[in-house]
Design a protein around this nucleic acid. Structure first.
Length: 851
RNA sequence: GCCGGCGUGGCGAAAUGGCAGACGCAAGGGACUUAAAAUCCCUUAUUCCGAAAGGAGUGUGCGGGUUCGAGUCCCGCCGCCGGCACCA
C-alpha cells in the first residue's frame, strides 16, 4: 500500500492546513473582556479527558474520543457558538518516576519530551484545540493552584447544619484539626518489604506487587486524608441534575453506598464496656443470637476472657498476615473464634456470645455487627458452621417469590415480624420504625445512615507529584501562606525509595528544612489531584492572580444555567468512579466556599467504547495487536483516520479495528476529492472539467437537503457513523453526474468539514471559495424540498407485504384504503376471507386484517 | 454472588412499534488496461419451486406474551462483556 500512488494528495495538504490553522490561531476561544468577544454568541464548552503523556505516545483509543469532541466543537463553531475546546496533560505519575529511577533522567525532562510527542501527534490528526490554553499539571504555574485549592480544603470544614463547606473560622469547637476537610490520620499504606517501598494501589495486582510479584503488607503511616465522606449525600443528590449515562450514575451511587439503619448499643456482661453495632435491619434485633467484632476492633483485647486469649491472639495474627489476595479469594469459607465474652441483647436481655471473624470489616459501620442468622446469608453460613442458635423473627408472608417460608434456612427479604415481642405482626418497614423509636427512647441506639464511601487517602510516598504546602513544627502541621506558593520539588538526582516508608523527599535535607523549628511535609499528592480541577483552569489558563477568574467562570461554566458547567465531557469508562467523584467533590467544596458559581463540573458525560485490536482482543504490546495513529496517518492520512474511527460504529460501543475499514473510508474521501478534482495528462490534479454552475435537479436537491438534515441531527445525537453513511449516499449520487453542479460542493464540503477538515479546506480553497471551510456557516435544509409528490406504500395482508402502491402524497386514508383493497394481489391474498380491519399509516403502509 | 451493558448476513453495522440488513468491508462476475494497481458497473441473508422471467416460505440468541403489526415493548431462560465483591 505504501508504495501505491496516493488517491489524493493528503500528505501534501494535511500538514499545510494544520500549520495554517496554528498560524492564524483559527480555533481560539474568546473570553469575555477580550477585544473580539461577542456576547451575543452562546458558549459551548466541550472537554476531553486529558491524557497522561506516556512514552508510548497517542493510542487510537484516545483518537476516538478526541475526534468525536472535535467534530462537535467544529460543528458548534459553524453554528455560531463560542467554543471552548482545550487540551492539556495529566503529567504527574508513576511511569515517569520509575523511568527516572531506572535511567537517572529527571522526570521533568522525560515528561517534557513525552508532552512534545503527544502534542505533535494530536496536531497531526488536525484537532481544533485552542493551544493557547494548553496546561500541564506538572507546571509550577499550574500546580501552585492545585496547592492553593488544597489550602482551601485545609482551611475549611463541613458544617453539618448548613450541609456546606465553610471557612474553618466558623467552627466553634475546641479542635479545628479534627474537622478540617484535609486532615491527618494514621492509615495503612501498601508496604512491600522486598522492594523496600510503598506502593500505590495501582501498582498492586492480586495482592502482590506488579513489579516482581512480592507480597504487600498493610502498615500504618501518617497520611493526609480528604473528608469526601462529608459530601456523600450531596454527591448522591447532585447526580439527579446531570445528563450522564444511567449506568455511570449507578456506579457512583453504589460506590457511595448509602444505607439507612440504626446504631444499637450492646452491653458486655460483667464489664463496663459496651459495643455499638450498625444494622440496616433493626427490626430483626430479637433474632440477634450472637455478635461479631472485626478482629482489629479496639475492644477485642479488653473483653477477651483469659481462657480464650490464646486462640483470639492466634486468629488475629493469622488475619493480619493475610494479604489482600487471601482476604478476597480465600475468604469464601467463614472463619472466626469465640472471645469468651457475652453481650446482652438490649431488647430481651438475652445473653449472646461475642465472636471475632474477618467477614466483619473494621472499615465499615462500627466494625461490629449483631448477627441475625435467620435473616442474613453470611450470619447464617457462620452460625451453621459454628453451631450457633438460629431464631426466626421475620415471616416470609406472601411467598410471592416462590420461596417457601421456613425457619431452617435463611430469609433475608422483608416480611412480618414474629417472635419479636412488641414488634410481632408488623411488616418490616413499620417494625424498623418502631424499634428505632424504642431504641432512641431508651437511649440504646438511634437511626443513622452509613456509607461505603471512605475518606480519600490523599498522600503518596513519591517524588513526582505536587508537594503539600504544609510544614511541621513540634508535631503539628501548619499551612503555608498563599504567597509561598508554588512549593516546588527540589531537584534531586536520586529518586530511589528510601527503603523505609518515608517518602523520597525526606532525603532532600536542604529543601526539607523550612526554618530552625519547622520541616516541610515530604508526602506528595496523588495523580488525581491535578485532574480534579483542570477543566476550570482551561477557562482562564493564563490568569496569574486566580485559579479561575470570576468572569471566566461565570461565562464558561455558569452561562447555560444548568448545574454542570462543562457542556459535554467525553472519555473512557475507567474514570467512571474515582476521577469523576473526586472532581465533583472538589468542585462542590470550591462552590460552597464561594470560589466558583456552579454546583457541578460536568453537565453531560459520554463514555467512548474501547477500540479492540484487529483480532478482537484488547490492544496490548504483548499481544502485538496495537495500531498506532502515526502509522494510519502516514498510509491513509489524518482525515481517513478520523473518519474511520467515527464510521466504525456507535461511539459508546466496544469495537474491533479493521485496516480494510480504513481503506473503505479512504476510498470514500478519494471519491469526494474527485467530485471536485481530476488528473490531467501530466498527472497533476486540476479542477474537474465536469463542474458547472448549474442548479441541482429535483432528485439532487432532495438528496442534498436530506443529507443536510440527517448529518445535522446525527451530529447532535453523536451518531457520527450514520452521518458519514449519509454523506456517502450523497457522494454516490453526485460522483457520476456530468455536468456536476458546483453547488453540490458548496453544500457537502461544510458538512464534511468537521469530519475531514483537511480535505474540506483543500477542496474549498481549490474551488476558489472565500474563507476557511471550517469557518463557514452550517448549512440548513428546506423541509419542503424533501417531500415527494408520489409516495410508495407497502400493502400488507395480515402483516405480510403483498403489494406496493404508488400514490399521491396527499391521498386521504380513505383513498389509500380503497386503492389498497382494489389491488389484485390483495384480492388474491384475501380470497375467501372477510376483511376485519384496515390500518392505514400514511406515508408508510397499509395493513389489511383478514380472517 | 450482586449490579450494569450487549446478542441482527461471512464481517463492522443500520432501522420515531410500521417494507429487517441503509452505508461500508469481504467475496464473486464484468468493463477499462499490453498487464497490474487504481477506477467504474453488476450480484451477494437463507431455503424451496422454476430453464428463465419470476414466485413461495423462513429469518434479528432461545421460549412465551402484548399488538392490526415486535429487532424494537413486557415476562422467563441462555450466552458474552464490563464493574463491584463478605458493606451488616
Amino acid at each position: 500500500m505504501s508504495t501505491q500512488r496516493k488517491q489524493y494528495p493528503f500528505s501534501e495538504f494535511e500538514p499545510r492546513w494544520q500549520q495554517h490553522w496554528l498560524e492564524v490561531d483559527a480555533f481560539r476561544a474568546v473570553n469575555p473582556g477580550d477585544a473580539d468577544f461577542d456576547a451575543s454568541k452562546p458558549k459551548y464548552y466541550i472537554l476531553d479527558m486529558f491524557p497522561y503523556p506516556s512514552g508510548d505516545g497517542l493510542h487510537v483509543g484516545h483518537v476516538e474520543g478526541y475526534t468525536a469532541t472535535d467534530i462537535l466543537a467544529r460543528f458548534h463553531r459553524m453554528q455560531g457558538f463560542n467554543v471552548l475546546h482545550p487540551m492539556g496533560w495529566d503529567a504527574f505519575g508513576l511511569p515517569a518516576e520509575q523511568y527516572a529511577i531506572k535511567t537517572g533522567q529527571h522526570p521533568r525532562v522525560t515528561t517534557a519530551r513525552n508532552i512534545d510527542n503527544f502534542r505533535r501527534q494530536l496536531q497531526a490528526v488536525g484537532f481544533s484545540y485552542d493551544w493557547q490554553r494548553e496546561v500541564s499539571t506538572t507546571d509550577p504555574a499550574y500546580f501552585r493552584w492545585t496547592q492553593w485549592i488544597f489550602l482551601q480544603l485545609y482551611n475549611a470544614w463541613f458544617n453539618p447544619s448548613s450541609r456546606k463547606a465553610e471557612p474553618i473560622s466558623t467552627y466553634t469547637g475546641s479542635d479545628p484539626d479534627s474537622v478540617r476537610l484535609a486532615y491527618v490520620a494514621e492509615m495503612p499504606v501498601n508496604w512491600c518489604p522486598q522492594l523496600g517501598t510503598v506502593l500505590a494501589n495501582e501498582e498492586i495486582v492480586d495482592g502482590k506487587s506488579e513489579v516482581g510479584g512480592f507480597p504487600v503488607e498493610r502498615r500504618p503511616l501518617r497520611q493526609w486524608m480528604l473528608r469526601i465522606t462529608a459530601f456523600a449525600d450531596r454527591l448522591l443528590e447532585g447526580l439527579d441534575g446531570l445528563d450522564w449515562p444511567e449506568g455511570i450514575k449507578l456506579l457512583q451511587r453504589n460506590w457511595i453506598g448509602r444505607s439507612e439503619g440504626a446504631l444499637v448499643r450492646f452491653a458486655i456482661q460483667n464489664s463496663d464496656c459496651h459495643v455499638e453495632v450498625f444494622t440496616t435491619r433493626p427490626d430483626t434485633l430479637f433474632g440477634a443470637t450472637y455478635m461479631i467484632l472485626a478482629p482489629e476492633h479496639l475492644l477485642v483485647a479488653s473483653i477477651t476472657t483469659p481462657d480464650q486469649a490464646e486462640c483470639v491472639e492466634k486468629y488475629k495474627a493469622s488475619v493480619a498476615s493475610k494479604s489482600d489476595l487471601d482476604r478476597t479469594e480465600l475468604n469464601k469459607e467463614k472463619s472466626g473464634v469465640f472471645t469468651g465474652a457475652f453481650a446482652i441483647n438490649p431488647v430481651n436481655g438475652n445473653k449472646i456470645p461475642v465472636w471475632i471473624a474477618d467477614y466483619v470489616l473494621m472499615g465499615y459501620g462500627t466494625g461490629a455487627i449483631m448477627a441475625v442468622p435467620a435473616h442474613d446469608e453470611r450470619d447464617y453460613e457462620f452460625a451453621t458452621k459454628f453451631q450457633l442458635p438460629i431464631l426466626e423473627v421475620v415471616k416470609n408472608e406472601g411467598g410471592t417469590d416462590g420461596i417457601p417460608p421456613s425457619a431452617s434456612s435463611c430469609f433475608s427479604g422483608e416480611g412480618v415480624a414474629v417472635n419479636s415481642g412488641f414488634l410481632d405482626g408488623l411488616p418490616t418497614a413499620e417494625a424498623k420504625q418502631k424499634i428505632t423509636a424504642w431504641l432512641e427512647e431508651k437511649a440504646l441506639g438511634r437511626g443513622t445512615v452509613n456509607y461505603k464511601l471512605r475518606d480519600w487517602l490523599f498522600s503518596r510516598q513519591r517524588y513526582w507529584g505536587e508537594p503539600f504546602p504544609i510544614v511541621w513544627e513540634s508535631g503539628r502541621h501548619h499551612a503555608l501562606s498563599n504567597t509561598e506558593l508554588p512549593v516546588i520539588q527540589p531537584d534531586m538526582e536520586d529518586f530511589k525509595p528510601t527503603g523505609t516508608p518515608e517518602p523520597p523527599l525526606s532525603k532532600a535535607t536542604d529543601w526539607l528544612r523550612y526554618s530552625d523549628k519547622a520541616q516541610r511535609e515530604t508526602n506528595t499528592m496523588p495523580q488525581w489531584a491535578g485532574s480534579c480541577w483542570y477543566y476550570l483552569r482551561f477557562c482562564d489558563a493564563t490568569n496569574s492572580n486566580k485559579f479561575i477568574g470570576t468572569e471566566a467562570d461565570q461565562y464558561w461554566m455558569a452561562q447555560s444555567g444548568k448545574p454542570g458547567g462543562v457542556d459535554l465531557y467525553v472519555g473512557g469508562t475507567e474514570h467512571a468512579v474515582l476521577h469523576l467523584l473526586y472532581a465533583r467533590f472538589w468542585h462542590k467544596a470550591l462552590h460552597d466556599l464561594g470560589h466558583i458559581a456552579t454546583p457541578e463540573p460536568f453537565q453531560r458525560l459520554v463514555n467512548q467504547g474501547m477500540i479492540l485490536g484487529p483480532d478482537g482482543q484488547k490492544m496490548s504490546k504483548s499481544r502485538g495487536n496495537v495500531v498506532t495513529p502515526d502509522s494510519v496517518i502516514s498510509e491513509y492520512g489524518a482525515d481517513s483516520l478520523r473518519l474511520y474511527e467515527m464510521f466504525m460504529g456507535p461511539l459508546e460501543q466496544m469495537k474491533p479495528w479493521s485496516m480494510k475499514g480504513v481503506e473503505g473510508v479512504y476510498r470514500f474521501l478519494a471519491r469526494v476529492w474527485r467530485l471536485a478534482m481530476e488528473e490531467n495528462q501530466e498527472g497533476q490534479w486540476i479542477l474537474s472539467r465536469d463542474l458547472a454552475e448549474i442548479p441541482l435537479n429535483s432528485q439532487q436537491l432532495r438528496t442534498a437537503h436530506a443529507t443536510i438534515k440527517k448529518v445535522t441531527s446525527d451530529i447532535r445525537q453523536l451518531a457520527f457513523n450514520t452521518a458519514i453513511s449519509q454523506m456517502m449516499v450523497f457522494t454516490n449520487e453526485f460522483v457520476n453526474a456530468k455536468p456536476r453542479p458546483i453547488e453540490s460542493l458548496r453544500i457537502l464540503i461544510p458538512l464534511l468539514s468537521p469530519f475531514a477538515p483537511h480535505l474540506a479546506e483543500e477542496i474549498w480553497s481549490r474551488l476558489g471559495f472565500s474563507g476557511l471551510a471550517s469557518k463557514q456557516p452550517w448549512p440548513t435544509h428546506d423541509e419542503s424540498l424533501l417531500v415527494e409528490n408520489e409516495v410508495e406504500l407497502a400493502v400488507q395482508v395480515n402483516g405480510k407485504v403483498r403489494e406496493r402502491l404508488v400514490i399521491s402524497k396527499d391521498a386521504t386514508k380513505e383513498e389509500i384504503e380503497k386503492a389498497a383493497l382494489a389491488s389484485e394481489k390483495v384480492r388474491e391474498a384475501t380470497a375467501g376471507q372477510s376483511i376485519v380491519k384496515v390500518v392505514v399509516v400514511p406515508g408508510k403502509l397499509v395493513n389489511i386484517v383478514a380472517k
